[in-house]
Design a binder for these strands. Structure first.
Lengths: 219, 219
DNA sequence: CCAAACTGTCACGGCTCCGTCACCGGTTTG
DNA sequence: CAAACCGGTGACGGAGCCGTGACAGTTTGG
């Protein structure tokens, strides 16, 4: 979500190299639409964009029921204190002044995605008889604790946090295993199987989307 | 209750935007007076404040009959990590290290105001036959005092104060040892082992969560 | 100034867990 | 309708994790 095409490509390239999935928007209006429909895990927002001003986009997103929880990084041309305070007041979580190194941006993205803000909001996930308590590292089915290994728990957490949306095997390998090589592996499948075994009746929430990946069902 | 005017205004703005009523104090002395007279629902306390030190303010408030129950969030500069454990012993309920995003602070405020029961830090923790007397720096099993070294006691305290929640080795190294480097160490394991030896029958309260860390059991 | 206590690191070994493979039934494709 | 594709399943060997004992460097106390 940028104004200069070159800069957009540069950022996109570096983020993809770090293993992230990137979607871009040409102006503020498009940015708003995509943000609300795709509900990304993080938004990088340039202040100087056409159609709808960056600050305005931020403000609107913060009022949105579903999008308000998404962390936002702001890109600003001036190092002016006004923009910084204004941006933070409107709910941005971090901001970067141009010019900046792509590496710095990637680091800030990582920090925000693993940061405390995310953990605070998602420290407990409940879906009918299944409950995930992340700080306690405990999964409950109908109130009874289920013994899960560390990897199984992380996999289930990632899927549950993005419930409704299909996660490809590559994405899961990146987020759960920190694998960046795209080697074909049956690892994910095996772990999903073990999860289903242990979850018992709650296994119905784990959907297989043939040819794509896995999904935690919504409602 | 801050030292930098800009930061105070920033926090104030964001809390008000979240629907809270906010009162500020310029120094520790003023903070104490206002806290005792207004009896707010929550206090955000900067460690680096003039007149009366933040830790001192915390200690005084905890001794006060009427103000002792008020949750306190401490703001600490990244340098003085020793303050963290010290603050916990003095009865702070949560910590935020600078720099932090305003949104993160608001989230922590919400959490503390939402569930006071699960976040209350007392100076005495009792779980069946095990009792921890934090101000006296003493651990008791079935009423009999157990000889613990300084490090062992701090480790046990940190684990017990976050009972139920798994603490990673890195987290424990950070909070108990002030280690920030992520080198692989068996130090935590060794100290847990020594703790278990000394605790005897009460050792069952220290859970190992394979691949994650350690946990003080709940109930 | 010495002895005792405390602390961090290391090596070892048992045991759990994990990644991979082969196989097979079901589904899609041409 | 056959061939290719895909994902579920069971099994297995290696890797990684953690408990344990030992030890050297440092601190404490007499």
């Amino acid at each position: 979500m940028e104004d200069e095409p070159d800069a957009v490509e540069l950022i996109k390239f570096n983020l993809k190299a770090a293993g992230y999935e990137v979607v871009t928007a040409a102006d503020g209006d498009e940015a708003l639409k995509k943000a609300k429909s795709l509900l990304p895990n993080l938004i990088i927002l340039d202040l100087m964009i056409p159609e709808v001003d960056g600050l305005e986009v931020c403000k609107i997103l913060r009022r949105d029921v579903r999008a308000s929880a998404i962390p936002i990084i702001m890109l600003t041309a001036k190092a002016g204190e006004v923009d910084r305070v204004l941006g933070l007041e409107l709910g941005a979580d971090d901001y970067v002044t141009k010019p900046f190194s792509p590496r710095e941006l990637v680091l800030r993205v990582k920090r925000l995605l693993r940061g405390p803000a995310e953990n605070l909001e998602t420290d407990q996930i409940t879906l009918n008889e299944l409950r995930l308590d992340i700080p306690r590292h405990q999964a409950l089915v109908k109130g009874k604790p289920i013994e899960l290994t560390a990897t199984e728990f992380r996999l289930l957490t990632v899927l549950a946090q993005r419930r409704g949306r299909v996660q490809s095997r590559e994405r899961l390998l990146h987020d759960v295993w920190d694998y960046d090589n795209l080697i074909d592996t049956r690892t994910v499948d095996t772990h999903v199987r073990r999860l289903r075994e242990k979850l018992g009746p709650a296994a119905k929430y784990l959907d297989t989307v043939r040819g794509v990946g896995y999904r935690f069902v919504e409602e």
